[in-house]
Design a protein around this nucleic acid. Structure first.
Length: 262
DNA sequence: ATGGCTTACAACGTAAGA
């Protein structure tokens, strides 16, 4: 049986608890990496996921950011944050599951290229690359999934001319994204031999989803050791069309687990 | 048209997202 591993920026886990629960019940992934939980740890809805047969690892803060990993089985060696990068914002959590090292990543948005937050974003990405390089030596079977807040190429942008040079598509961000791949990863959808994946985010405003004015900014990066095991990669647009959606859609990949020994 | 939507906070407007 293949492993189904998903990532979803839910834009508040409490506001989206029923949507996430329904999606887990329907799609039954082994793993769901979540970003923007926007919930303190003491208020994380642990029981709701246990009732569905999932275990959880999470790192949150009030109001902003927050990441989690929801998985059908035991999570081990839980680590929060980027070692050596002192950051109060909860943007990274890693677990070991079924012989895989799995990270849920919430890359800073950056706000605008002339914002101080843009510099923070680039620094965070540099620290992530260094961390991924180190982790690959410990965990060759590594998946970094999440909201990277970067559309890697113009094909990942509905209107490249309108977006040219803007945050999420700027060349320095794209270079940083390529740097993550150069650390030893494939973009899962490309590795599956697909020529298109589709957008993963649509603005709440201006009927953007109906018009498919979107970006592909949520990604699953798989280490080279997993490259031959990637079977499929898909954006599930269904939850985005429902009432009170997250502005992001879940993205999943299917991985042959022949080499996990499971 | 720096607007437009959505969320959390202990708020009745502000900050932040992308």
């Amino acid at each position: 049986m293949p492993l189904k591993i998903a990532t979803w920026n839910v834009n508040s886990l409490r506001a989206r608890l029923s949507a996430v629960s329904e999606w887990l019940a329907r799609e039954a992934p082994q793993v769901l990496c979540v970003q923007e939980t926007k919930v303190r740890d003491e208020e994380f809805p642990v029981q709701a996921f246990q009732d569905l047969g999932y275990q959880v690892a999470f790192a949150g803060e009030p109001a902003y950011n927050g990441v989690a990993i929801i998985a059908r089985g035991d999570l081990e060696a839980i680590e929060v944050g980027l070692p050596g990068f002192d950051d109060p914002q909860k943007r990274l959590i890693a677990v070991t599951y079924a012989g895989l090292r799995i990270m849920s990543c919430y890359v800073p948005n950056g706000t605008a290229v002339d914002s101080p937050r843009y510099g923070y974003k680039l620094q965070w990405l540099a620290a992530l690359r260094a961390h991924l390089e180190r982790e690959l030596t410990r965990y060759p079977r590594l998946i970094a999934a999440g909201d990277f807040n970067i559309a890697p190429t113009d094909r990942d942008v509905h209107d490249p001319q309108a977006w040219e040079g803007q945050v999420l598509v700027s060349e320095r961000e794209r270079a940083a994204f390529r740097g993550l791949l150069e650390a030893g990863f494939y973009d899962a959808f490309a590795r599956c031999g697909q020529d298109a994946c589709g957008f993963s985010w649509w603005d709440y405003r201006g009927l953007a989803f109906r018009r498919n004015h979107g970006l592909r900014i949520d990604h699953l990066l798989i280490s080279h050791a997993l490259g031959d095991d990637c079977r499929a990669c898909h954006v599930d647009r269904t939850p985005r069309a429902q009432t009170r959606p997250s502005d992001h859609a879940p993205v999943w990949l299917e991985l042959d687990d022949r080499s996990t020994g499971a």
